[in-house]
Computed example of a mutant assay.
Amino acid sequence: MENRAHALAAGLFVIFLSAAMAGVAMWLSGDRLTRDKYLLVSAFPITGLNPQATVRYRGLTVGKVENIRLDPKDSHTILIQISVDKDLPLTKSAYAQLGYQGLTGLAFVQLNDEGGESERLKTDSENLAQIPFRPSELDSITTSAQRLLSTANGLVERLNLVFDDQNRSRFTRIMENTEGATGQMRRLITQLEPGIKKLPGLANDASSVLNRTDQLVIGLNQITTKLNQQGGAIDNFSQTAAELSGTMHKLNGVAEGLTRNSRNVDRILLQLEEQPGSLLFGRSPPPPGPGEDGFVSPGSH
């Protein structure tokens, strides 16, 4: 009787264990059937992320990380395979980031969707759809801090070059020259002060000179007006010039007559020189030419 009780208990235990195993198998099978797999591609470090880490979509837990490996084609790229709920509305504009849980610092995958695409992202077990992995806000801050630190280091190096011993001595000389120039400017201003004080008097003198110049111009205008009046000096000068012009014409006629008389006298003197007797007996006729009576050829003598 006791053996039967032990056998019954053992049988019930085996049945219960089999049912539990069947339930677990069904649960696992159902999990595979209701989840889709995607491949996250990251060119950035994923410090702290491990397999079985949580996958969240806008803060809600929707899946887990199945495995993490390096891309066999590019060792700088990290491939992260995840499985998420089948009804998760991922589109082609979806992307992933690395997040950290509160004080524990456990890393998880945060899925987001920009909403720029309405087409669903299709995936299957043989050809997993890829989702780009972007740097997290902490990574962006770290990168910016590194760039800022690098820029600050470069600035410090440049300042060290600017403020080296040679440049410091140059700056010292510049300051000394500036101080000397300032002193010279002060002395120059001191020397110019008497002249500056005399400027109002010079301005008054210049004003009086201008007034006198205006009076002189007015006097010249009056003289010009009188000269231009009818019967004035300009008209008298014009009449005198006309009379002189007539006299010059007469003198030109007399000069022409004298010139003609001078030519006649020259001809008479030439004749007297050639034939002195012509003054008493008159001018002898010219010798006969060829073909005239009394013509004698020069070669016949």
Rank of each mutant, 00 (worst) to 15 (best):
S140W: 08
T240N: 06
M175G: 12
A242V: 04
R147K: 10
A7P: 00
Y95N: 05
N228A: 15
L280P: 00
R173V: 06
S297P: 12
M26K: 09
L161M: 10
L227E: 10
N261G: 08
G294V: 06
P290E: 14
D71I: 04
L8E: 12
D71Y: 02
R69H: 11
V14G: 03
G48V: 05
E274P: 01
K250R: 09
I268T: 10
D85E: 11
S118T: 15
S144A: 15
T151I: 12
Q110F: 07
G23Y: 13
Q230W: 01
T213I: 08
T142F: 06
L138G: 09
L39Y: 02
E114K: 07
N264W: 03
S284A: 12
R58I: 10
S284V: 11
G180R: 14
G232S: 10
L49N: 04
S29K: 06
D31M: 01
A241Y: 11
S207M: 04
E137W: 00
W27M: 09
A9C: 06
L210H: 01
M21A: 14
R186I: 11
T47E: 14
H249M: 09
S169W: 05
R267L: 12
S207W: 07
D74T: 05
A107M: 03
P287D: 10
E243V: 01
L103M: 08
Q230N: 04
L269V: 14
G253N: 05
D139Q: 15
Q101G: 07
L111Y: 03
M26L: 13
R260W: 03
N160C: 02
A9N: 12
P45E: 13
Q52P: 00
L39G: 03
A9T: 05
P298Q: 08
R260P: 00
S208P: 00
S75V: 09
R212D: 00
Q191R: 11
R263E: 12
Q166I: 07
A10D: 14
E117I: 14
A96H: 05
P194E: 03
F108I: 03
G257S: 14
P276I: 04
Q230P: 15
S140N: 10
L202V: 10
I268Q: 03
V65G: 03
V156T: 12
P200M: 05
I141S: 09
S284D: 12
R158P: 00
S75L: 06
Q215W: 01
Q130E: 15
L88T: 06
T224L: 12
T240C: 05
I223S: 10
N153M: 10
T123S: 15
F44A: 07
L138Y: 04
N204K: 14
A19K: 10
G48I: 02
S83F: 01
Q239L: 13
D266I: 05
D235N: 09
N67H: 09
V109C: 02
V55C: 04
D71V: 02
L270A: 15
R4K: 13
Q275H: 15
L103F: 07
A181Y: 09
G291E: 01
A53K: 00
S245V: 01
L88A: 04
G282P: 03
S238Y: 07
S118D: 13
G116V: 07
D85T: 03
